[in-house]
Amino acid sequence: MYLKLSYEIRDKYLRKDMLPTIFCPGCGIGSVLQYTLRAIDELGWSKDEVVWVSGIGCSSRVPGFVDFDGLHTTHGRALAFATGIKMARPDLKVIAFMGDGDTAAIGGNHFIHAIRRNLDVTVILINNFTYGMTGGQVAPTTLKGLRGTTAPYGSFENPFDIAELAVAAGANYVARWTVFNYLQGINSIKKALQKKGFSLVEFLSPCPISFGRRNRMKTAPELIKWYNKITVPISKAKKMSPEELEGKIIIGEFVDRDRPSLDEEYEEYKKRAKKMMGWE
């Protein structure tokens, strides 16, 4: 695979007057953004046929930096807004760029219902285990025992596994990587973008400032080292017992299937309605 130089991608896809981004040094969002843009580039998609949607949080600021139509909405509601966009203009492609708090905490219900409906969007999810923008509170993804400003004594709650949840709710394509998985990441995004129906690519992404600092991992490399330690490829995980998997996060492709998407079903629905009413 020929990889373009990153400045080529930058120049082609970013809004120059919006740079620099607001992201802290060591943050993983920039990398994931680059993977996404590379995937779009390789697919040869026009900038005019893609709409980016987001909620609130660090990751949600991404649509402001890319030169596409972008809707930066309210906290947790990105997928609900996306439903309107996709259903009113099924020919447009929709990317939702979201964070873990936005997706799985306040937006959890829209998440599972968008998946159930099989709405044709691609969710690029930045999972950094924390609310970065508001100052490092614990999120529903924060692993047990880790600290945040609202869990100064270590989180005592059980965390969500967003990817598994998406599989259980019925998504067509689900994959999870760390930002370190460069090629797998780009390939997964490409697959996800081409997939009709709901697709999710989750990235474990370092937040050294709000998350790492409070958990004795002050720099991105330390966080990435930690990710390497706690992640297990899915093929290997299948052979491991639940006890061995305790505290581990599985990475890889979780599901790849082709259930009809909501807009396809709706096209049929309209035809049926007209038939039932004797219009056609």
């Binding site: 709409v51 309210t74 509601r77 609900a80 309107g84 966009i85 009113a88 447009l92």
Partner: peptide
């Protein structure tokens, strides 16, 4: 979600 969806639709 209902009001969110109609705002999204209005923008297209």
């Amino acid at each position: 979600a209902s009001i969110a969806a109609i705002i999204g639709a209005s923008w297209v």
